[in-house]
Design a protein around this nucleic acid. Structure first.
Length: 427
RNA sequence: GGAGGGGUUCCCGAGUGGCUAAAGGGAUCAGACUGUAAAUCUGACGCGCGAGCUUCGGUGGUUCGAAUCCACCCCCCUCCA
């Protein structure tokens, strides 16, 4: 094993990325040589979202520091459902659906890691591979025997489910901890994996795995958790009016993704730079100092948006996002060329094909999803919140007309200050 | 299996026969102010242009009238066995 270049723990700590870890100083020493670590991602949807990005990027940080990362996709655990800090029991997903999600997630996690075949080349695994063959009796005898229910019910992660009036937990979800623990022990056995990282809600599951590895293999393994991303105003991170911000470009366009970061609050943006980018801490500090000195608009948001969009959607995705943003927010939409309009569509600006040469604005707002009902559409118009091709719509009787479109084909509807939709007239 | 408690509009949560589309809070959206911020203020927040219509786990009753009463069913929780 080769020595690592930098001390990853110190780096993570300086970024505020360490929530808890087992035997801190010992772990730092342990990591002075190249080690194998893992983090798990359960298939609870067809794509990962930005909340998954922090541990994912942490794996990358470890790899850059010379360690070998394993990204585990939970084909087995995804069938069970992690109860950690969840207020209520979750609906089980169909197994064939989860199977499909596993494949999607494998691809997603891979894009953040290096598979160069070198000593610390990354590995992607699926825990279903070792869980599916285990018989219930063997599992209960060989694994379950190492767990004390008394200890399990002490974990904070399930406490509210056990104590809160009106809540409850099924045996299925209660067993989740054991499955995840078994993963850690198994990865130790297979790959010499000695560290598990995850969000701070995973602490209970991680320590469970550490105990199991010791009992089954007399192994000393470690755990480290990363803070969950929060917003300074206490709201839930990663949601917008349109919903979750996904990593999959088909579910959240690079433009929407870019806009999400651009809209980060001042109170959060420097933290996010540390969490979500690879800019070093000193650079981020300099940005903050410069922003403080300027009275106007800070630079941090646009740097953040550029960095993260580039990371997730690549240079092309970033270019597309910036093109749209520039066109919609800095220029007059009427200055757009025909090619620009076509490009907006290709770049992922939400768009709708309109058959026929005329459409009432209220209907159009509903059909494009800019308003949830006719009633809401009328309200937006009454509040002068709707504009078509830059001109405010002042009546619900207004029609989108092909004669008044851009280049005989396009109309850009704006609702509120930030929502845009491209309408394309078609035959 | 027994006893008890509960399921209300996105969430929490009032509401025990008409004055209830249903208090209050949160979230969300729009407008003003701004930096495509924050804070603040204003408005909206089931559907319908409207008269009005459809909602309070489900079904069926009682009643002039039900989220509220009755019956059965489904689901959740607690305790006992």
């Amino acid at each position: 094993m080769s020595a690592t270049s930098i001390n990853i723990i110190n780096d993570l700590e300086s970024r505020g990325l360490v929530s808890q870890m087992t035997s801190g100083d010992e772990l730092k020493t342990f990591l002075s040589r190249s080690r194998t670590l893992y983090s798990g991602f359960d298939p609870t949807a067809e794509s990962l979202h930005i909340g998954n990005l922090v541990p994912l990027l942490a794996l990358r940080r470890f790899q850059l520091a010379g360690h070998k990362p394993i990204a585990l996709v939970g084909g087995a655990t995804g069938l069970i459902g992690d109860p950690s800090f969840k207020a209520s029991e979750r609906q089980l997903n169909a197994s064939d659906v989860v199977e499909g999600w596993v494949e999607r997630l494998k691809g997603q996690v891979s894009q953040f890691l290096e598979f160069d075949g070198g000593a610390n080349s990354a590995i992607v695994v699926n825990n279903l591979d070792w869980v599916k063959g285990v018989s219930v009796l063997n599992f209960l005898r060989d694994v379950g025997k190492h767990f004390s229910v008394n200890a399990m019910i002490q974990k904070d992660s399930v406490k509210q489910r056990l104590e809160r009036e009106g809540a409850g937990i099924s045996f299925t979800e209660f067993s989740y901890m054991i499955l995840q623990s078994y993963d850690f022990a198994e990865l130790y056995n297979r790959y010499g994996c000695t560290l598990q990282i995850g969000g701070s809600d995973q602490w209970g599951n991680i320590t469970g795995g550490i105990d199991l590895a010791r009992r089954m293999y007399k192994a000393q393994v470690y755990g480290l958790t990363i803070p969950l991303v929060t917003k300074a105003d206490g709201q839930k991170f990663g949601k917008t009016e349109t919903g979750t911000i996904w990593l999959d470009a088909a579910k959240t366009s690079p433009y929407t993704f870019y806009q999400f970061w651009l809209n980060a609050a001042d109170a959060d943006v420097y933290t996010y730079l540390k969490y979500f980018t690879f800019l070093d801490v000193a650079t981020i500090h300099d940005i903050e100092v410069a922003d403080m000195a300027e009275r106007g608009k800070p630079q941090a948001q646009s740097i953040l948006a550029r960095e993260v969009t580039q990371l997730v959607h690549g240079a092309e995705g970033l270019a597309a996002a910036e093109r749209i943003s520039r066109a919609l927010f800095t220029g007059d939409t009427n200055t757009l060329s025909r090619e620009d309009c076509e490009q907006l569509k290709l770049d992922g600006l939400p768009n709708t094909l309109l058959i026929g040469g005329r459409k009432n604005i209220v209907e159009a707002l509903v059909e494009t999803g800019l308003a949830s009902s006719n009633k809401m559409a009328r309200e937006f118009i009454a509040n002068t919140a709707v504009a078509v091709n830059g001109a405010c719509v002042d009546s619900p009787d207004f029609d989108l007309r092909i004669e008044a479109s851009l280049f005989g084909k396009y109309a850009i509807i704006k609702r509120g200050k930030k929502m845009f939709h491209l309408v394309c007239f078609g035959a």
